[in-house]
Design a protein around this nucleic acid. Sequence first.
DNA 1: GCTCAATCTGACCAAATGGTCAACTTTGTC
DNA 2: GACAAAGTTGACCATTTGGTCAGATTGAGC
Lengths: 238, 238
Amino acid sequence: MKGQEARGEEPSSGTVATRRLRRRLDSEARILAAAEQIFAETGFSGATTAMIAAKARLPKANVHYYFRTKRQLYRAVLQRILEAWLASGDGIRAEADPATAFTDYISAKMEASRRQPYASKVFANEILHGAPEVDDYLRDQVHRWVQEKARVIDRWVAEGRMRPVDAPHLFFVLWAATQTYADFDCQMRAVLKRRRLTPGDYAAGAALITRMVLGACGIRTGNGADRRRVTQGPDRRA
Amino acid sequence: MKGQEARGEEPSSGTVATRRLRRRLDSEARILAAAEQIFAETGFSGATTAMIAAKARLPKANVHYYFRTKRQLYRAVLQRILEAWLASGDGIRAEADPATAFTDYISAKMEASRRQPYASKVFANEILHGAPEVDDYLRDQVHRWVQEKARVIDRWVAEGRMRPVDAPHLFFVLWAATQTYADFDCQMRAVLKRRRLTPGDYAAGAALITRMVLGACGIRTGNGADRRRVTQGPDRRA
DNA sequence: GCTCAATCTGACCAAATGGTCAACTTTGTC
DNA sequence: GACAAAGTTGACCATTTGGTCAGATTGAGC
């Protein structure tokens, strides 16, 4: 009648993957993947444990065996997402080159929108409805993350490597711009009359966003770091 | 047993606001306003007609009298939102000055995020879950709107008034950047440790987004059109 | 003031849904 | 191979919720 306690702990012997453990990890992974997709498509309230169970190809009662409640399952899904969320900004360090750092960060964010659209959507839905489950996480971890990155940016500014910008707002806008390629893909597909967004669409978005950010930061890309992504004609300033 | 048929039609005599009509319009308006807020806060599935009725201070059955089903009420809410949605881009015309047009458009979008956050959230939620109710609207009206604006932009480009940009993507990013101030305000408040976003926050966002867009479009703002909104130091290009 | 349609509403219902449980099977361990 | 713990699952239940309805009330037109 329990089992959740063991989640995340490896057996003392390390890598002895017993049949039981392997199966449990597989079931949990299947449930989490199914839940992520269902939560992304329908939101928390719209999702039913029956839908998730069906997608994971398990009986509903089994889902409730691994994750006591729908809310607990939802939190587990969110946690995985949040862990990956901030890791992508590791390249923004004082020692780094601003142009490269921003370009790479935008690339990574765009890639995330392309490869893990469900994760982005679940997160977007959570925030959209007031972040009932991750509010403290935002206040704590994300706040620290932004402060840290803001310090890096302010230092770049002080060193004359870029124009002054409001760093938190830069991130807000940057997140919105990149994540919209996951969250609102439906709108883009409809407007562009595409059945699916193409790699070219993501490339065009990344190029545009990079140009916008570097432009706003007054960063000249002398090394042509982003040239390979630019689909439009070259810079032709007078 | 009916009544919806009369919605939107004025009585033949024009402005003879009978007690009955006045009351009906008032009730409908109250229900729509309540519904917009509830749908924004909880999404379609999360909202209950009981919640909406309570917020509108009407018995639930009365809500169902004016709007037969929850879905119909939801569609009515969406329709109002969509109508206001595109009107804000009227300033983007070939005769206009690109710098002014973009600056004003961003201002208007930002103002909408500030003044009608619920509308933005309802719309975001709808798109996020695959636009089940407005898919054809996107394919039709919004598609046409984007095409039209893209023509204007392409003409500005041809006239050498701005660098070439991918117009549809420019709008996608621009919408995301401005609407995030409504949709994700919760995240911003948490990160900035504010109880509410201040006018200054919206101004900073608008200034940054304007700078980004104009920067990406290679538009120099010789007339200082956006200077009054810029909070950071002036342009100091070498 | 009478009539009728529009409006209002408390009470009610069927369906959906999160969650439980008891019985059953499988697996690890001694 | 026996025992206990972990895992599995069909059946079940209480609650929520969208929607209905019959009867009461009110306002407009005459």
